[in-house]
Design a protein around this nucleic acid. Sequence first.
DNA 1: AATGGCCAAATTGTTGACAATAAAGCCATA
DNA 2: TATGGCTTTATTGTCAACAATTTGGCCATT
Lengths: 232, 232
Amino acid sequence: MNEIKQSSPPATSNSEDNTLSGQTTIALREAIVTGQILPGEKLNEPKLAKQHSVSRGPLREAIRRLVSMGLVEHKPHVGASVIPLEVNRVIELYEVREALEGMAASLAATHMSEEGIGELKQLLELHRQHYQDNSGEYMQAEGDFDFHYLIIKGSGNALLTQQLCNELYHLIRMFRFQTSRFKARSNRALVEHEQLIYAIENRDSALAEMLMRRHISRAKESIRTYLTTEKP
Amino acid sequence: MNEIKQSSPPATSNSEDNTLSGQTTIALREAIVTGQILPGEKLNEPKLAKQHSVSRGPLREAIRRLVSMGLVEHKPHVGASVIPLEVNRVIELYEVREALEGMAASLAATHMSEEGIGELKQLLELHRQHYQDNSGEYMQAEGDFDFHYLIIKGSGNALLTQQLCNELYHLIRMFRFQTSRFKARSNRALVEHEQLIYAIENRDSALAEMLMRRHISRAKESIRTYLTTEKP
DNA sequence: AATGGCCAAATTGTTGACAATAAAGCCATA
DNA sequence: TATGGCTTTATTGTCAACAATTTGGCCATT
């Protein structure tokens, strides 16, 4: 009962199909995100096809989808490989997130339903209690996703939601997994979430955007200093 | 000699490969963008494969890439079809552009090289002369792309550039083609571009972002009123 | 011993046939 | 005549074999 509900975010249970290529996409995606296939590692088609008990057709299709998610690079006549974990890429991802999720927060402040705002409050309360009970460790990982997902969905912009929740989402997950030793910032995040809800509740789109952007920008800077100092 | 250089933007000469699937992707993409295949139209695999003289394998791969560009929708066991042209989608696209290109302008103000700024000025001068000579009609289409592309590239953010120039770019082209009867705003665009260059030159990232966002937001509103009044 | 070109192995790109699913039309029945 | 279920047909999903390209290693030459 200590489990947080895994319903809201599109986590693993994406709206994928039940075709072989769809299932293979999910399997490969999770293998990459959870580090079973390492950054930079090459994706050998015959080998992976045998592993997943499919022919090369569906497997190639799965690889293509991973390319469109940004998890995999592909060079003609050479092959596909998991994207290497470079500091620059992480920074760039956070800059794109800042732009996109900032807009999402702004739109959510305008369009989000009262019901949606209620869900946000409910989630915040859940996180707050969990923070008091435990040492407040994990929330940064799973909990943050739920929160951001609700806001993105609340923007009412399907393209924006698609870009963030289907394309970039798994890239974020992967980077976060690879740098998971680095936690911190759990209490501050709680306060920042609270302020964000307040702004959305008051239909203050400019403030909501600013808070969201600052929220992400701070995370970016934390990661930047972490990755550039402890690396060599 | 009246032709504007087509070098800078990734227009048709994308960094695609020389494989069949790559060429088919380009061919199909252009057919969709230029309206040879209409919005909402279904993509019949055997028929298209025969048309382009390839087998269904590469063609399916091409379709998948178009899906990742947002030009095509795909339902399992049903098939792919060109995305329908709805007002909401256009508005949503402009909102995403506003967020992404706003960030690009901000980053460009910080990172763009003096040389890049020089190119911007050069391009602006070209547009200004063309506006004086002719009635200043087309610039909105081709010219605007060049300008925005230079700024996006100047951001130095590869992911951002990838998202805008490879994924969303052709969606913009398609919508712009489908609503091409609607021009206007040619002189104002010139002034707005001039202001933007000024902001970037002065390394004023906040101003650059604001001007770019307003630039796109205005275009959005123009299109919104145009599409919602003249439609029925 | 280092370098250059050539050959072979492994991997990717492509093809056509086969299987599974969904849409459309038909017939029977109420 | 309208409706429901069935059959047929067209289309998508999958497979295994074939062709083309790259990479790595080998040998000859300088």
